[in-house]
Simulated assay, not measured.
Amino acid sequence: MTDFIGEIAALSAACLWAVASIVYAKLGARIPPLQLNLIKGIIAIALFVFTIVVRGEIFPAIATLPMSLILLSGVIGISLGDTAFFITINCLGARRALLMQTLTSPMSAIFGLIFLQEKLNILAGCGILLTILGVAWVVSERTTDVKQISTTEFRRGITFGLLTAVAGAIGAVLSRSAFSINTNASINPLWAALLRLSAGILILMIWTLFKQHSFRLSNLRDSRTITATIFAAFCGTYLGIWLQQTAIKFTSVGIASTLLQTSPIFVIPFAIWMGEKVSIRAILGVFISIAGIALLFYLK
């Protein structure tokens, strides 16, 4: 089982992100996206610090280069990538934005091949492609929640959707590079997650002050809203990013990114549980993705 620690961590993160996305969809009507992003990040940072204190893990002796790569990964992947993703959602809607985000997987594999010399055989490539096709088939299904958009909005959404995918791929490759560098001290995924998130949130805070956005705590006066926000931050940001960094450390960046993009597949069981109607197409898409995931595990 330890041979699959990276793959299991990636799928676990995707599942938790699916749970968190359902909660964030409800919170989005009450809290502006940028403010919600900052709040969940701050909560997750506090949880990371608490975990590190409880576990008694002192600050690791990380060399300058891997430290810089991790911090830069947070700036690009979280600050730039998440912001671009929010804009994509506003322009294209949630389903089309998720479809654009699936491009992160092949881009990560390509960047990993170019910059990290991570080679994938033909069968592994087929597994990645099969997984992406399954996810894409699910999120591209025509439903009543797909909004009608103008040509200008469409072009803007496509542009920022591509930026989201590129930023996510670069962030993943930078993290993988930090783990791959041979140093005397191995980087703990827990510390990597804290450093990456802290860098991303710091840039978001500076950007918020620069843009003079109002940060109102009045949105969190409702106890149910506070509880939901803490729960989503715990699942999606704290555990999600920790597991993401674990996945990137223990498996190739192409496979990790592919499995991390399977969140839409995990949403379906929750949708059925919540009483929503799920089409045969969506279920078939799940089985296609599962076939791709099984192929990736088999090749390991």
Rank of each mutant, 00 (worst) to 15 (best):
G41D: 04
V253F: 14
A9G: 05
A172C: 05
I248V: 14
I114V: 14
M100N: 10
L80V: 11
G171P: 01
S175H: 03
V135G: 11
L239F: 11
F287E: 01
I248Q: 11
S12M: 03
S140G: 05
N121G: 13
L72G: 14
T2N: 08
T88M: 08
R216E: 15
V173P: 02
I181F: 02
P33K: 01
I206S: 08
S73D: 04
Q35G: 03
A199R: 04
I170Y: 00
I241H: 08
Q101H: 15
S214E: 15
L72F: 08
I22W: 07
N184M: 13
W207C: 10
F160M: 14
A13T: 05
A165T: 10
R96G: 08
W242G: 05
G77P: 11
A199K: 09
S223G: 02
A228D: 15
K147C: 09
R155H: 11
G200A: 05
I170M: 03
A233N: 11
T237R: 03
F111L: 15
T251P: 09
I22L: 15
T258H: 10
I87C: 09
S68T: 00
G81D: 06
K147D: 08
L209E: 08
P189V: 07
I76H: 04
L47C: 06
A94R: 12
F4N: 08
S223T: 13
F234T: 12
F50T: 14
S68M: 02
V267R: 10
G41A: 02
F266Q: 15
I170R: 00
S175I: 03
L123D: 14
T183I: 03
I52D: 02
E57L: 01
N37V: 00
A124K: 14
L130V: 07
I201T: 14
G157M: 12
E7Q: 12
K300W: 03
I45D: 04
